[in-house]
Design a protein around this nucleic acid. Sequence first.
DNA 1: GCTTTTTACTTTATTTATGAAAGGAGTTAG
DNA 2: CTAACTCCTTTCATAAATAAAGTAAAAAGC
Lengths: 136, 136
Amino acid sequence: MLDNTDSHILDELSKNSRITMKELGEKVHLTGPATSARVAKLEDSGIIEGYTIKVNQEKMGYSVHSIIHVYTKNTNHQPYLSFIKNHNQYVINNYKVSGESCYLLECKFQSNAILDEFLTGLSNFVSYKLSIVINK
Amino acid sequence: MLDNTDSHILDELSKNSRITMKELGEKVHLTGPATSARVAKLEDSGIIEGYTIKVNQEKMGYSVHSIIHVYTKNTNHQPYLSFIKNHNQYVINNYKVSGESCYLLECKFQSNAILDEFLTGLSNFVSYKLSIVINK
DNA sequence: GCTTTTTACTTTATTTATGAAAGGAGTTAG
DNA sequence: CTAACTCCTTTCATAAATAAAGTAAAAAGC
């Protein structure tokens, strides 16, 4: 399904998705058009879902990176899901998980004050445990 | 520091980082060279850290997405850190966190069998609690 | 076992984008 | 009032993308 050349292409595009097809071709020992065709195939198959950028959240003013373990009180999760939808500027990921908690909510905030405000709102709908990301 | 046009540029590049500077310029009402200069500035300032792709991990054969709460037994974390470095094909993120656990380890696996094998190895160094991501 | 089809590539030529250079308008500073 | 700076546009040379044609090897069909 995926040969070495394809893996190499994914690898290089992960490192720099704005590389030219010509340059990428040189790295994987193919011509520009051949590389372009390979990439188009990876897109069509859905393996490449899209092209994006890595943004430095610290420099964007989001210095607080937190993981919130969410425990829904009642069976209806909708109020919680609406709440985070209304605060999606803070949300990085919201995973529904098996295990102890119901959701694992990854968020970024400009300050502890704003985190505090968010948590105050959140506590209207669910219980939670807070972790702050220290590194990596 | 960051005006509306810059925000718009970041927004569009997040959606599609392979867009041409000309097209991106049309979206933000600027010419190609002007857009190109803006983007170069965002790169130089470190706000744009890089250009990458979103890969569909399911289609890559990684159907098991897990979050592992790691509790280090002793004060020396190095054995754990070495272990995950040696198994980095499975690792998506390894966050050092405040709160209950010491690390929050996000991993992908091809199967529960491989997850099991990973956990068996992991338990030589640390205690853990396992969560499996069900959605989103 | 030979032909046909398919796949994956290269080469060539055209279209299109990039990037450098020059210049203009508006803003700030002396 | 002038000078310097910022941010943009326009123009043009260069480079890349894309479409089309052709080739070679592997797979499928008879």
